[in-house]
Nucleic acid binder design. Sequence first.
RNA 1: GAGGGCGUAGCUCAGUAGGUUAGAGCGACAGUUUGUGGAUCUGUAGGUCGUGGGUUCGAGACCCAUCGUUCUCCCCA
Length: 455
Amino acid sequence: MSKPSLPQGTRDFNAATVQKRQYIFQTIKSVFELYGFQALETPAMENLETLMGKYGEEGDKLIFKILNNGLDLPQKKQQTLEGVEKLFAGKSSTELTERALRYDLTIPFARYIAMHHGSLTFPFKRYQIQPVWRADRPQKGRYREFYQCDADVVGSDSLLNEVDLMSVYLTAFGNLKLPVEVKMNNRKILLGLAQFCGGEEKLIDLTIAIDKLDKIGWEKVKEELNTKGFSDAQQKIIQQYLNITGSNEEKIAQLKKLLGDNASVLKGIEELNYVLQYHPSSGMSKQLVADFTLARGLNYYTGLIFEVKALNTDMGSIGGGGRYNDLTSLFGVPNIPGVGISFGVDRIYDVMEEKNLFPPSIEQTTQVLFFNLGEEEAQAAYAQMDLLRNKKIACEIYPEKSKFDKQFKYAEKKGIPNVIIIGTEELGKKECKLKNINTGIQTTILFNELVNYKF
RNA sequence: GAGGGCGUAGCUCAGUAGGUUAGAGCGACAGUUUGUGGAUCUGUAGGUCGUGGGUUCGAGACCCAUCGUUCUCCCCA
């Protein structure tokens, strides 16, 4: 038998890891609920049709597809072979696969809205904390199965939603004690730039090239723009655009100077300003950074876009989101605008681990271990344990009669702070010995007093 | 999809220029100690050196392939 192993990019989580992850989930979830979002869960798998074509060409390739059952049935052989043919022709094949694992939470949410818009009350605010799967090559901070925590508002155009979501970000990361900055830009500004550089149809090429700036540098971006057919004059404008620096106010002033006669850019700036300046007293403005080089890969965004970066680490973005005018029209239900944000829990975990930000208090375990010193003694111990458990004190009894050594070591390894010893001596006197593992202090307590002991 | 690093005991790793019986630390288990843990000491178990080929008198080491893993690029959380 070969050694058991895990599929690439997936992980097991031990007790300590689960507790830390739960701490992140809980923190985010309670902020979501504080802001009026309600939970939604959707299936791990969706119809392939629901997902395909929503994430761009690259994204489609990374969708985990589920092979149909019964492909090996003799009567289906012809159909299966046709499916394979289609596959090699570069088309998707419903003969072979009709379902896929969800790639993110936003598209399944849009599908949900499209299916239930008749019975939902708008504006509809939902949050969703579930795993997603991507057939990506794993590397640092990148897994094939990872959790997303999304909060979205649909059915409202108001920028107050953006303000609220930025507050959710800052509150949640504040509660996690994780220093971050939220970069903001507006697709309308990028659209304006594209219009300035030869047309809206170049928006996607433009955003993809711009997005790479901080990674590959201007020279490489320039090369890419060249191959995509941007003229020298256009490249010059793009370079000026990317060179904008300074405080939020200074950046916006420079942008106005450069592209201020474009209506889309002006609109974009206005929206950006609205959110940046909504309540200056909160200190929000400090962590919100206008960044015109932010582009984001997903093309369904149409308004403000956000990306969260943890400070002082080389981890990529740990969250992102933006406004989309018309996501549900992909599913035949137009005119439901929305805006959403997402937390990348696995990366947040990695950063917090790296920076040692988990409070020690979240590691909780059994409070009391009862020693097992024989059948009769164990029975007495079990009765005492019942009483403590009724008081919501986490207890366990060592399941077999063993040497002290072994039972002590068990408690120590598991981090159980208290052991209770009931042997023949104690049994006779109806008392027990309570020993604190950390301090080494041992006290004697009568059975009928144990329930009221403060652990 | 492209490119690099690494696979030796449960874990972390050594293994010199290919040479006879593959090592250490930690951990596990047992004893020292039939009712008081963390320490010490002693002992024990555990490896077809990722897999398959090849070169060689001889391969853990060199070559090829393959699988796994990790990192970078693309893309993304």
